[in-house]
Amino acid sequence: MLCAVALVAVTGTALAAYNPWRLVRLERFGRPTAVTAALFVAPLLLGVAVWLVVRDWVARGIVAGAALLLAGALCVGGIPLSVVFSRSGEGPPVSTTVLAVAPGGRFELVDVRYSDFGFVRDVLRIRSRAGLRSRESAQVLACFRRSYEEQAAPDRVLRSARFVDDTRVELAARDGVAWTTTFDPRTLVAAATLPRGCTG
Rank of each mutant, 00 (worst) to 15 (best):
V50C: 12
W51F: 06
L52G: 15
L52K: 14
L52H: 13
L52S: 06
V53W: 15
R55A: 15
R55K: 14
R55D: 15
D56A: 09
W57N: 06
W57Y: 09
V58A: 12
A59E: 03
R60H: 04
G61P: 06
G61I: 09
I62D: 00
V63W: 10
V63H: 08
V63C: 13
V63N: 09
G65N: 11
G65R: 13
A67D: 12
A67G: 08
L68W: 11
L68D: 01
L68R: 03
L68S: 05
A71H: 10
A73G: 15
A73H: 06
L74Q: 03
C75H: 13
V76M: 14
G77V: 02
G77D: 02
G77F: 00
G77T: 02
G78M: 08
G78E: 01
G78V: 07
P80A: 01
P80N: 07
L81S: 12
S82N: 06
S82F: 08
S82P: 02
V83F: 13
V84K: 03
F85C: 03
S86H: 00
S88C: 01
E90M: 10
G91D: 15
G91K: 08
P93W: 03
V94S: 11
S95D: 00
T96K: 10
T97I: 03
V98L: 04
V98M: 06
A102K: 13
G104K: 09
G105T: 12
F107Q: 05
E108N: 06
L109C: 05
L109S: 07
V110Y: 01
V110D: 07
D111K: 09
V112T: 15
Y114M: 13
Y114S: 12
Y114I: 11
S115V: 14
G118W: 08
F119M: 08
F119Q: 07
